[in-house]
Simulated assay, not measured.
Amino acid sequence: MLGDLNKKELIDLLESQVIGRIGCHSDGETYVVPVNYVYKNNAVYAHSGNGKKIKMMRANPKVCFQVDQIKDTFRWKSAILWGDFVELTGEERQQAMQGIIHRIMPLTSRPSQETSHGIQTEEHTSLVVFRIDLTKATGKYETHNL
């Protein structure tokens, strides 16, 4: 059976996953890339080193975010959300970074040995921490009693 996710199911999906994909578009080019994230208060929080996606989101803050949970070919959930990129500074940046670290680190098998994209190194201060303020969302699912 195919169906639409309701608002609660969309939020449950966002809260249960840690990897999503950001789609950004700038200067005639579209770019989609996976990121670790945390969902809170109708926003997605993530971090990145300076690079292509940050440059593109700064140029055009209108972005798309996609997350899914796939059990197999006939049992899955997927959400696509739209929103605005906002670069964080100060206390909000620090709190977002702590939330990301607390969400990601328990999922590694060797937390003391993992740098998780630079979040435990001196480069921590050069990371761009941002949120996507969500403005629109849609979700689908498929289930089968096999």
Rank of each mutant, 00 (worst) to 15 (best):
M1S: 12
G3Q: 04
K8N: 14
E9C: 07
I11Y: 07
I11M: 09
L13P: 06
I19G: 02
G20I: 06
G20E: 05
I22E: 11
E29D: 09
P34V: 11
Y37A: 11
V38C: 07
Y39M: 13
N41D: 15
N42Y: 03
A43E: 07
A46V: 05
A46W: 02
H47T: 03
G49K: 10
N50M: 12
K52W: 00
K52L: 10
R58S: 04
N60T: 14
N60C: 13
K62N: 14
I70S: 04
R75E: 13
W76H: 13
W76E: 12
W76T: 15
S78L: 08
W82E: 05
G83A: 11
V86I: 13
T89M: 14
E92D: 12
E92C: 06
E92G: 05
R93S: 09
M97N: 06
G99F: 02
I100P: 01
I101E: 11
I101M: 12
I101D: 06
H102R: 14
R103S: 06
M105W: 08
P106S: 14
S109F: 10
R110L: 14
R110M: 14
S112Y: 15
E114S: 12
S116D: 08
Q120F: 08
E123V: 09
T125E: 08
S126G: 10
S126L: 09
V128Q: 02
F130C: 04
D133K: 15
K140M: 00
E142D: 05
H144P: 00
